Simulated assay, not measured.
Amino acid sequence: MTCAIVILNWNGRGLLQHFLPSVVAHTTEAQVYVVDNASTDDSVAFLVENFPTVSVIQNSANLGYAGGYNSALQYISADVYCLLNSDVRVTEGWLRPILPLFENPEVAVVQPKIKDEKCPAYFEYAGAAGGYIDKYGFPYCRGRVFDTIEEDKGQYNSPSPCSIFWASGACFFVRAEVFRELGGFDEDFFAHQEEIDLCWRVHHKGKQVLCCPESEVYHVGGATLTAANPRKTYLNFRNSLFMLLKNLPDERLYSTLFVRMVLDGVAGVRFLLQGKPRLLWAVVKAHFGFYGSFFKFKKKRPTTFFADYYQTKSVVWRHFVANK
């Protein structure tokens, strides 16, 4: 079972300098690649000079997360791709529990346990111990619901591996054959939630998505766009609507989209009351972006659907109203 570790970089020389040594030191079972998304800093020169064992692929433009990986992975031959953020520190033996899982042909995607580099006892926002979505497409994780993040006390160590709905793009292992069959990430997302969309399409095919808590990595998070960045808010809200339009079963499509859009409105008002008018405007723009691409995304709907996509009907209600 061959594996390629593929790190996407855009003007991230400092991150590469800090985190790449751990990847090189603890990755003897795989070739390491860095895909440069047309950086304007000296990332490529730094890599060539300091990491001769790392293969560098240069994209001609900043293609975002989705396009950057789709373009580069055409040139990488492996059975399994590990798509790894440039702000992730890996640990000794991190690959050992994960790669054997792909010996089961039904397994398509795996993530390790993802913890916070800045607060190592806690889970990290982007993935924690594996992700789910509620009926209305709001993502949450084992170990993280909205901005509430749990300390890792081993509460998600069993079962191992554990079936999840989506794996984090911060450290995303995917069977290369499945990735190619599904056409890779949806490049119209550009960045944010494209990994959830891909996992949903994996489920449509009847394949498995797993978390392997025996493997741990540490993620900084927000190194490219912080949580308070309106661009990130825009992409998250718009792309969540795109994902629902593409993947919801026919009988649930319009009613679920309507409720979700009402909840987005509530979120926008909450941003305003918090003194964050730029985030409110980002939500408004996200909806107009969704309207403009509605029919384009509707054409992407599959012929068969994974209907049991949620375990919790409304994580918004349970968290903010029921205080659970």
Rank of each mutant, 00 (worst) to 15 (best):
M1V: 04
T2V: 00
C3A: 11
I5M: 09
L8V: 06
G12I: 01
L15P: 04
P21K: 02
S22D: 09
V23A: 08
V24M: 04
A30N: 08
Q31P: 03
T40Y: 05
E49A: 14
I57L: 15
Y69W: 05
S71P: 07
D79Y: 00
L83R: 07
R89A: 13
E92D: 15
I114M: 09
K118D: 08
A121T: 15
A126Y: 11
A129P: 07
Y132D: 12
C141N: 10
V145Q: 06
E151I: 09
D152Q: 01
G154V: 03
N157M: 10
S160N: 13
P161S: 02
C162G: 06
S163D: 14
I164N: 00
C171S: 09
A176I: 06
R180Q: 13
F185K: 07
E187Y: 08
E195K: 06
C199G: 05
R201H: 04
R201W: 08
R201V: 09
P213N: 03
Y218C: 06
Y218L: 13
G222I: 07
T224G: 10
T233R: 06
N239T: 08
F242I: 01
L245D: 02
L245N: 04
L245W: 02
S255E: 15
V259G: 06
V259T: 15
Q274N: 14
Q274V: 01
K276E: 15
V284I: 15
F288V: 10
F288L: 13
F288H: 12
F288P: 01
F294H: 07
F295N: 07
F297T: 03
Y309N: 06
H319K: 11
A322K: 14
A322W: 04
A322C: 11
N323T: 12
K324D: 07
